[in-house]
């Protein structure tokens, strides 16, 4: 597949898919928000649900920089709780873009890049853990080290790693579903 420069129509497509991406996260958050345990596995669900959005986007705009734009826009909206999220998502976008370019947009390349990009939905949770350090520091100063240790004990950091792991799994499944849906629906309908 030959890479060309992004044209205006590609940029519009990028904006539209960024909305889809963010809107679906909002919908999922509102559907699962009532059940906190489900909310914690949101990265898994989001990874699966957003797969078709990503794969359709890549097949519509298989050009250098497309994923990067998506990551900047989606990262911006997801960074509602902290600007750090934007940086995190953009880094993922850069990695995904490199994978896509190296693999020349092959099917497996798209799927691998999506596994990485699926971690983006971990962003809002990540900011909580950034804040945790600062929070524990002040806790230690105000209420004593003992109190801070207690808090440290009840908010385990391994949740973060588990979440990233399930996000990767979500990305794997989502990429598979996305490619399947491309073949089943979008290619047949003539829009992919």
């Amino acid at each position: 597949m030959k890479e060309k420069k992004l044209q205006t129509k590609d940029l519009i497509m990028a904006g539209v898919f960024a909305v889809l991406y963010v809107a679906l996260i909002c919908i999922m958050a509102s559907l699962t928000g009532m059940f906190i345990p489900v909310y914690l596995i949101l990265p898994l669900i989001a990874g699966i649900v957003l797969g078709p959005v990503y794969t359709l986007y890549i097949s519509k705009v298989p050009k250098m920089g497309a994923v990067l734009i998506l990551s900047v826009l989606a990262g911006f909206v997801m960074s509602a709780s902290s600007i750090v999220v934007l940086l995190y998502v953009v880094v993922l976008g850069v990695i995904a873009q490199i994978i896509l370019t190296k693999t020349n947009y092959s099917t497996s390349g798209i799927r691998i890049s999506y596994i990485i990009f699926a971690c983006a939905t971990e962003g809002p949770f990540l900011s909580l853990f950034f804040a945790r350090e600062g929070f524990l520091n002040t806790c230690a100063q105000y209420y004593g080290q003992e109190y801070a240790d207690k808090i440290d004990a009840v908010t385990p950091i391994w949740v973060l790693f588990v979440q990233i792991a399930i996000a990767l799994i979500g990305g794997f499944i989502g990429g598979r579903i996305g490619m399947g849906m491309n073949a089943k629906h979008f290619k047949k309908a003539g829009i992919a």
Binding site: L6, L11, G15, V19, V22, G65, I69
Partner: peptide, 19 residues
């Protein structure tokens, strides 16, 4: 650059449409 501004404005225009 235009590569960010155009998608950015499209994004905000599209939220209500997607809704």
């Amino acid at each position: 650059p235009e590569e960010i501004t155009i998608p950015f404005s499209v994004m905000f225009r599209f939220f209500p449409t997607i809704g």
